[in-house]
Design a protein around this nucleic acid. Sequence first.
DNA 1: CTGAAAGCGCTTACAG
DNA 2: CTGAAAGCGCTTACAG
Lengths: 363, 363
Amino acid sequence: MARVTVKDISTKLNISLGTVSKALSGKDGVNIETRKLVIETANTMGYKVNKLAQSLSRNPLLVGVLMPSAWPEYYSFLEIGIKDGFSNFRDYNLYSLFTYVPSLFSRKEIEKAEEFIEQQNVNAVIICPALDPSYKQLVNKLSKRKIVTLLLGRDIPDTEYLACVRTDSPVAGAMAGEFLDLITPPGGDAVVLIGNKDHLDHTERVEGFARSFVRKGHKVKGVYETQDDPELAHFLAGKVIREQPDLRAIYVATGNSIAVCRCIEEMGLQGKISIVATDIYPEIRTYMEKDIIQGVIFQDQIRQGENAVRVVFDYLSGGIIPSKSILIQPQLIMRSNLVKTCGPYLNPVTHKTAAYPEKSEKN
Amino acid sequence: MARVTVKDISTKLNISLGTVSKALSGKDGVNIETRKLVIETANTMGYKVNKLAQSLSRNPLLVGVLMPSAWPEYYSFLEIGIKDGFSNFRDYNLYSLFTYVPSLFSRKEIEKAEEFIEQQNVNAVIICPALDPSYKQLVNKLSKRKIVTLLLGRDIPDTEYLACVRTDSPVAGAMAGEFLDLITPPGGDAVVLIGNKDHLDHTERVEGFARSFVRKGHKVKGVYETQDDPELAHFLAGKVIREQPDLRAIYVATGNSIAVCRCIEEMGLQGKISIVATDIYPEIRTYMEKDIIQGVIFQDQIRQGENAVRVVFDYLSGGIIPSKSILIQPQLIMRSNLVKTCGPYLNPVTHKTAAYPEKSEKN
DNA sequence: CTGAAAGCGCTTACAG
DNA sequence: CTGAAAGCGCTTACAG
C-alpha cells in the first residue's frame, strides 16, 4: 500500500536522509560504497522518487528559449507550444527566459542573443533555428561550452545537441504521396514544391512522396524550389501548370500553399488539379471549401513545443536522456476534421513583437 | 519574480495559513466574510495554488474503474490508457481500484461490481460501459448516491454523470465519407456497416458519412447492422457486394473490418472495392498492404483513457468542472503513417484476465 | 564523507 | 470560527 520513500531507505540502512538523497541523485560527497549500497537497496525496495517533492525542494531550473520573431505564421505556434509546455510545469520550479531574434537572417542579432543567454546562467536552451547558417555556429558554440541544447522544429546536421524535436518528414511526404496517389485519376502527374533542396527536412519530404505516388502510372514530374517566397511559388505553379498538360496534383511541401491556391483559382482549375498542402493557415479553410485543397499535412507545432519542454525538463530534473531525434507524427487533415483538429491554427496570428533581446518570464 | 503563496496572503491579511487555505479550497469552518476577503485578496495578488504542494499534503484520492474484461481488442486499450493516465499522476497522491466485469452482458456481475465499488468509498468512478442496459441502471444508481461518475468510450444518454470522454463520431463518419468520396470513381456507390442502429455513436457516424459522401453522383446504398458479429459482417458484406453491382466503397463503422476484408479477399475484389475501417488491429496492417483497406479511422483509445483520468483528477483535486462531452478527434490512418502513429495497437493483445471482482492497485 | 535541520507550499487534524 | 503545529517527500546549505 504505502509507497517507498527515502526515509524508508534511510531507516533500513541506518543512514541519514540527506545522504540517501545525495547518493540517489548522483550528487557528489558520498562514499562510493555507500552510494552503491543505497542505490541497490533503493532498487530492491522498489523506490521511485516523488517528482513533486523533488521539484518543491530543489533549486529552480532556468531554461532559455531562442527563436525568431519573424514569420509568425510558423514560429508563433512553436512559441505557444513552448509556453504551454512551461505552463504544464508551472508548479515544478521551472523558469523560462525568452529571447527573440527579429530577422530570419541576421548573424549579428543571433550573436547578441547568444551572449545574452550565456550571461544568464541557464540550465539549458531551446533553440528554434531558422535557415541562416549562423544557427549552426551558435549550436556549436553552445555545445563547446557544455550548455544543454535542444533544437525545435528543424534539425541542424553535424552539430551536437541533446535532442531535436521535429516533424517526421519522411512520413509527411509519404502521406501526401499516398493520398494524392489515391485521389488522382490514372495517368495524372504531380509536381512537388519545396522551400529549399538543400534542406534535410525538405528532401526527406520529397523522397517520401516519390516513394508512395506510384500507382496507376503516376509520375513525379519535377521538384521546384520556392525559396519560401510566395511570389516565386505563385509563378512556379503557373509555369508548371502551363507546361505540363497531364499535371493533376501538386504537393506543396513548404509553407507557400496559399500562393499556389491563388494561382489555381486564377487559372480556373479548381477540381482539375488536386493540392496537398503543408501546415494550417486561416486561408486554408477557404481553399478547402472551394475544393482547391484536398488535404493538408498538419505538423502540430504546438505539440512539438510542448514536447520540447517536457524533454528538457525530464533531462534536467531526472537525468532522462532522450532519443536524439524526436519525430512528431503528422496528421492528414481534410475538410471534415479541419476545424475541430486544428482550431488554434485557424485564427489570424496577431503577433506582438517581443522586446529584444530579452523577455524574462516565469511560471 | 517570486510567486504568490498562501503565506503571502496570510501575512498580508494577518490571518493564519490554515484559514487562508480553508477559505481558498472551499472547506467549511470559515466565516463568510473572511472567506470573501481571502478570495478577493488572492485574486488581486494573482495567487495560483501550487498543485504539487497541494497533492503532497492532502489526503489520498481514490478512483474506482469499472470495465469489461471481454473484447480485449477494444477495452484493453482503454485500460492501458487509464493506467497510463494514473501513472501520469503517480506522484499526486491519486490511487486507483480496478474492477473487471467478465462478460459484456451480465447484469449480475455488474451489480456485484457495483456493490464492491460502493463499499470502497471511492472519490469517483470511471466506467467503460458495454452495450448492456444494466450499465444505464448502474450510472443512475451511482448518480443518486452522489458518486462522481465519468463515462469512457461510450455515452449513455439520459443519465447523470460528470463527463463522457469518447470519439467525435460525427467527425469520424464525415472523414470516412470525405475520403471515400475522393477515392471512389464517379458513379460508385457505398454501403455502411455499423454495429447497432440504435446506438448514438453509430448513428452519428452514419449521418456524418452520408453528409460527405456526396460528389460525383455517389450514393449511400444502405446501412447494415453487423451486431458486432464477425460472421454476420462477413455474410452481409458478401450479400451487398453480390446484390449491388455499382458498389465501390464500404465504410465499416464498427469493429468488424477484418471479417469484411476476408470477404473481399475471398471474392477477389481487392482494388475494385475500397474500404475504410474503424479502429486498428494487428491484421489491419496486412490488409492495408494488400490494398484492401485504404484508410482507417483511428480513435486512439489510449489517449481517451489518459484524458479520462486527467479530467477526473482535475475535478477531484481542483474542482474543475469539465464539459459534459469531451470529444476526442479521430485521425485518418493510411499505409504511410500506420506503424509510426498506431504502434501499440499493432501488437497482438495478450490479455491476462484480471482477478474478479477486484484488483486493487496503487500508483 | 555524513548528519541534523530548515525549508519548498500546501492541508489537516487538533486545540482553543 | 480561528490558529498553531505537524506533516507530505524530498533537497540543500551548513556544521561536524
